[in-house]
Every structure is written in structure tokens, then in C-alpha cells.
Amino acid sequence: METKYMYKDEFGNECIFLRDAYYELVCAIITDFFEETLPNNDFHSRFLNLLNTLEGYDDVYNITTEMPFYWAICIIENEWTNKHLIKNKTNDLFIEWYKKYKQKNDIVSFIIEGINEDTYIFNDKEGGKNIFLRGKYYEFISDLIKYFFNKTHEYNELDYMLIGYLNGLPASGNDKNIEKFINKELYWALSIIENKETTTVLNEKQLEEYNKFRDEFFETNNITSFIVSQS
């Protein structure tokens, strides 16, 4: 089984499903949480076949909309089952176990998403129409991490948070909705690098280099800002 499965979501964006990590979680629920021997039965084979024969968004959706512990129980029972938990385990116990498992295995999400829509339309304080280039914004954050700070752009809690904020901009189109992004590029890049919300002040030379880097990004992408006025 290949570790990663690349597919396009319902918005046409490239996504990655970490199916190997998902399978490892289901197995760990069986052996570590339920304290059962990993069965070599028909349902186990069926589950592996589902993971190995993915053909797009619908298949990933069908697998991940079921809770991982449900797949584990089905494998233990060797059938589709209505049982929710077994051996007197409670939901609270599972939540606590899963929290520790994610921390130990550095898991944020089993699906790495892209930016759903490249642009976001909003009104400024004067009522004028503007476009926030959120796709380019995220691309710039990634370039900052990789080429300005020379760090690996890792998919972690803060990257997950930024993608969620960008994808979750409300349809109300208020200028306050983008306040957490504009002029916060360094904050987001450094926070993703540290995987925690952080504030670092650049010295005068670094700030000059940053401004040059930003201007070169704008020139390369034929823009002058992440906000385009439509007034």
C-alpha cells in the first residue's frame, strides 16, 4: 500500500490522503486500545482492499466519514456491526487514548487539504468591492518558509489552522474577516515553522531582505498586493 494517495476534492483541489497512517491507526485501536490480536479475517482484507483501490474523492470520503474505531470494531467482529465500543470501553477513554496517540505520532489530520478557492470577495469600510487573493497568500507563506527562512514547510497544527481559516472565510464578505491575514505574513510563516503561535521581530537588515523577497514574489505573480480593488 502506497503511503499517500493524491486526489482532487469536490472543489478540484489537489489533496493527499495519508492512508498508510490511517491504516496504522485502525490497527493500533485494535491492538492497543481494545487489546485484541489483529485479526487476519475477511473484513480485514476488505478494509485493506478499500484502501488499496481508491479511485477519487468519493472513496476517500466514504472511508474517512466512518470513525476509525468503527473500522476497528468491524475488523474485530469480521462484519459490518452496530456495536460502537467493546470490552466496556467508553467514548471518553477512546478520546483520551486518541489524543495521546496523535501527540505521540505527530498526527494533525489524515487529509492534507489545499485552498478551496483562490479568491475571496469582500467589502471594505467604504462599501467598495475587493478581492483577497487567498491562494496567492498561502503560496507566499509557503515560499517564505522554504526560500526566505530556508525551512521545510511541514503540515502541522499551525499550517492546518491557517488552511482552515483561509478556507473558512464567511460569505458575509466583511473586511474584518481578513484582518488575521493582512500584514501577518511573517507571523504565519514563523508560527508554522515553530508549530506554535509566535512573534519574532526581524532586525533592520532582515526586514529589508524580507521586503525585497515580497516585492519579487509580487512581480513574479504580476500583482502588487494580496488585495485587488474592484471599485
Rank of each mutant, 00 (worst) to 15 (best):
D58M: 13
K102L: 00
I76S: 08
Y5E: 03
L202M: 14
Y23H: 12
E79P: 01
N13P: 00
N174S: 09
T37N: 10
S225H: 13
A171C: 02
D20I: 00
A189Y: 10
I73Q: 10
M161N: 06
N78H: 10
F132N: 11
D9W: 13
S142Q: 10
N78G: 11
I193Q: 07
Y138C: 01
C27E: 13
I107G: 10
F213N: 10
S225W: 06
D143F: 11
N82G: 14
E179W: 08
K99L: 03
F94A: 06
F33A: 12
G173T: 06
T119L: 03
L169P: 05
N174H: 08
H153T: 07
G114S: 15
I107S: 08
N91C: 06
F47Y: 14
Y137P: 01
Y160T: 00
S109W: 03
L169G: 03
L54Q: 08
K83W: 07
N105C: 00
N156S: 05
E126S: 05
L202D: 11
W97E: 02
Y147F: 11
K196G: 02
L162H: 07
R134H: 07
A189M: 05
D92P: 00
Y7E: 09
E66M: 09
E197R: 15
E126V: 03
I193H: 07
V108T: 14
E55K: 15
D143H: 12
F43I: 01
L50S: 12
Y138A: 12
F11I: 00
N156A: 00
Q103P: 00
W97N: 05
N174F: 04
N211W: 08
E36L: 02
K104Y: 08
G135K: 02
E157V: 00
F110S: 06
N41T: 11
T31V: 13
K176D: 05
K146I: 01
W71D: 06
D106V: 01
F181E: 06
Q103K: 15
S231D: 03
D20L: 13
N222F: 09
F217I: 01
Q230C: 04
N91D: 09
K8F: 12
M67S: 09
K125I: 04
E197T: 04
I95M: 09
L144H: 10
N221R: 14
Y147A: 02
F43Y: 15
K180Y: 05
E185D: 15
F33Y: 14
T199D: 08
D124N: 15
K104G: 03
E194L: 00
Y70G: 03
I145W: 07
E209H: 01
K146T: 06
T199S: 13
N52A: 14
